[in-house]
Design a protein around this nucleic acid. Structure first.
Lengths: 342, 342
DNA sequence: TCCTTTTACGTAAACGTTTACTCTTTTTAA
DNA sequence: TTAAAAAGAGTAAACGTTTACGTAAAAGGA
């Protein structure tokens, strides 16, 4: 059995209320008492019980985080940002790996509710109807990061996917590329899939460029998906000089497949990524990519939770964070890259 | 204010003890009562309060995990394994990013103690003396994963680093390589640094091969470190045909530097990695590497915690898990690779 | 000096559960 | 039938805190 506030109180010859006040830095005790109690705490090695605190104070200083995938550079960078901020504010993080499975996410939400978390961060995945209902039924605030929901208007932190895709496409075009392949996310994904596709198409159109449908493909943001989709695109044997893959992992897949087929990047083909995870840095050649400020997003997400807890009456808290191009080595000017099937 | 067991009891016309028993699937109530209570629970949308449970039952169904770095493929894969097992056993994970900083780890341990976690997993980092003392003072079990401590004998789950390094070195030698560069971890690191170095040297010696000191370097397992160390090794201009880097990230670093210097892997040089994270898969060329079964290690670590909680009197619980070579494309036979400075 | 305010505590209730004891009532066994 | 056992349920104490309220003494003000 461990040392409780009672033991401290008895040993120091005061009431538990006094110990509590001292521990919590409130006032209502004399200087000598304080010192005596502090010494006793030290001697006994007393540690307050956060569970008991949580029960009476009705806050647990913990936040639940739902991530579709833990083992990737994207999620882990996001998590690092959240952890840093949470720590500084005295909060801990429960992490849940939903694997994009409906039932897992529901289970997670249920558990987090029972564990009385002070907030929930739902990251980079689509929200189903029943998840949305659960989220609504929670007493704690919930925010989205790197995603949002059209039907359930929780505050979110994300980049403007549409604009980011425009930026990327424009970058390629300004480098002189005209025939551009595109590997996007699922078009059924209204948050990260569709808007990027739209951004790409809109920008192409604005520059009077045609998008060749056999040069477009849609995957799931993963390495394998990038690799396979690029293989399919190559099968079409249509001319192109650049490919825009909307995640670094997919871009790495493109690089990998290109390598296998003896296609040299950037000499034969330009490749543009998206995210700016470490995958972009480690790639060969290092990937030029659209950066999402993942750590900042994680930080903002927990700040958002915290600010909602304070001003219960909150204004619209959505935060659009800025994307930007990180130029590395995978994109050259059109004139310096040969292109494929020309 | 949310619905409590009292509300359910009142509404259903029974005592809270009965509700509790029904919720927890114990016995001591009639079939009709059970149905009535269950219906009431459904209607009211009652959710048990795990904090209150934790207070009386003195278990919180949560486990704390300390990781030196969150944002890497290594940690996140490990985490994924832990999460999966924890979830299946009804546990949640608090993740803490120590950043290998003494004070952060101490703070984390303190918080986890206050939050009354049921176990602690200390991952892939060296344990300092004061951390060891804190760990000892915790009431819950603690285990190491992918590390261990010589001075604080907590149970651990890891591969045999010495043997794994032997395996890797032997693999290279069996492929006919004789002049092998080595990029290790810090020699001050008695767990993951020194043993791998020793395994490398021992195996070289056993095969009557000389290790050329200017072809060895020691880093911190990260990409940049691999890159820079390889650059230094090249400066020595000593002949060699293979390099063994003891993390995939560092191996990716050598690939990256090799690419910049126009060295072709595997045609000019063989590269062997360690870990088998996604970095190995995504690398160009895909890395042949020593696999650590990270997910399995994560799983075993939480299983270990759980089993210690049950049989309080526990035997020696250390678990050495098996490493193995994953052959991909970065190592060819000596006869097929040109080598450098020959 | 006397009254008022402040300081320094202590008491006890609450937070939402679980569970050891009760006490009936019903079932079982002989 | 009747005693014993089992089933069905309630009461209340505990878990370790925080905090509203009370009270006596000390300090302050005139």
């Amino acid at each position: 059995m461990s040392i409780t506030i009672k033991d401290v109180a008895r040993q120091a010859g005061v009431s538990i209320a006094t110990v509590s006040r001292i521990v919590n830095g409130q006032k209502g005790y004399g200087e000598k008492t304080k010192e005596r109690v502090l010494k006793t705490i030290e001697e006994l090695g007393y540690t307050p019980n956060a569970i008991a605190r949580g029960l009476v104070g009705r806050e647990t200083k913990s936040i639940g985080v739902l991530l579709p995938k833990l083992s990737g550079l994207f999620a882990s960078k996001l998590l690092e940002g959240m952890e840093e901020t949470a720590r500084n504010e005295g909060y801990s993080l429960f992490v849940c790996h939903t694997d994009s499975k409906e039932d897992r996410a529901i289970q997670d939400l249920q558990v987090l509710k029972e564990k009385q978390v002070d907030g929930i961060i739902y990251a980079s995945d689509q929200l189903s109807e029943s998840q949305g209902q659960m989220l609504n039924s929670m007493v704690c605030p919930a925010v989205f990061v790197s995603t949002q929901s059209l039907t359930h208007p929780f505050p979110y932190v994300k980049v403007d996917d549409y604009q980011a895709a425009c930026t990327g496409t424009r970058y390629l075009i300004e480098k002189g590329h005209k025939q551009i392949a595109f590997i996007g996310g699922s078009l059924e994904d209204p948050i990260a899939g569709k808007p990027r596709d739209e951004g790409f198409r809109k920008t192409m159109k604005d520059h009077h460029l045609k998008v060749e449908e056999s040069l477009t493909a849609y995957g799931d943001f993963r390495f394998q998906s990038g690799k396979e989709n690029f293989k399919n695109i190559l099968k079409a044997e249509k001319p192109f000089t650049a490919v825009f893959a909307v995640s670094d992992e997919m871009a790495a897949g493109v690089l990998s497949e290109a390598y296998e087929q003896g296609i040299s990047v950037p000499d034969d083909l330009a490749v543009l990524g998206y995210d700016n995870t470490m995958a972009a840095e480690m790639a060969i050649p290092p990937l030029t990519t659209i950066a999402q400020p993942l750590e900042e997003m994680g930080q903002k997400a927990v700040e958002l939770i915290l600010s909602i807890r304070e001003n219960k009456g909150n204004i619209n808290k959505n935060k659009i964070v800025k994307h930007r191009i990180i130029e590395r080595k995978s994109v050259l000017e059109r004139s310096k890259t040969k292109g494929l099937f020309l």
